[in-house]
Design a protein around this nucleic acid. Sequence first.
DNA 1: TGCCTATATAACTTTTAGGTAACTTATTGT
DNA 2: ACAATAAGTTACCTAAAAGTTATATAGGCA
Lengths: 91, 91
Amino acid sequence: MKLIGTKWKPLVLFHLLEGPIRSGKLQNKIPDISNKMFTQTVRELEKDNLINRKVFPVVPPKVEYELTEKGKSLESILKSLDTWGKEMSAF
Amino acid sequence: MKLIGTKWKPLVLFHLLEGPIRSGKLQNKIPDISNKMFTQTVRELEKDNLINRKVFPVVPPKVEYELTEKGKSLESILKSLDTWGKEMSAF
DNA sequence: TGCCTATATAACTTTTAGGTAACTTATTGT
DNA sequence: ACAATAAGTTACCTAAAAGTTATATAGGCA
């Protein structure tokens, strides 16, 4: 499972720390991600067992993503990365 | 500075946590890295001010790498990542 | 004379990540 | 009829990351 070495995975996970969220909303939180990369990223995270995908059988579609326990175990790392990145961009 | 999104940077930094080390030794700790990627990676880390490069003017060449203070500030993140990776590969 | 050393670079190729744009789906409301 | 909706897929293309192979260096020593 490559977490590092990918551009989007950590970012998606980071936003999921806030709790379950609809697909579109999550995507909006990451303005620069393309539609394709978003889907691809969440699919991989699902395979990695870091997130769950909940599909509601309605029209138009409704899909929610949320962290699994395994995903939640990344919380401190993700937050540290975020903090570190912000501190360093001050330089 | 892209730490995330690169394959080798975190690994190189992780090995430097043990202290200053000669170029060749460091490279040996990462068996799968190609000669080119090793050089390229340390050069970028140097530009990022995460590591220092010390050149000894001898023949054959002797070069040492060590973390800067900024590099050392990554310690807890790097160690967490390492620990997490090991725990998870148990699955 | 010519080989060995450790570190690095250059030229080139392959692989993978990522982006774009068009299309699908099924139901509701007009 | 048909437009709008949210989520996703597909085919295609480009750019960036990484790998491979060959070469340079300069002094010590057989």
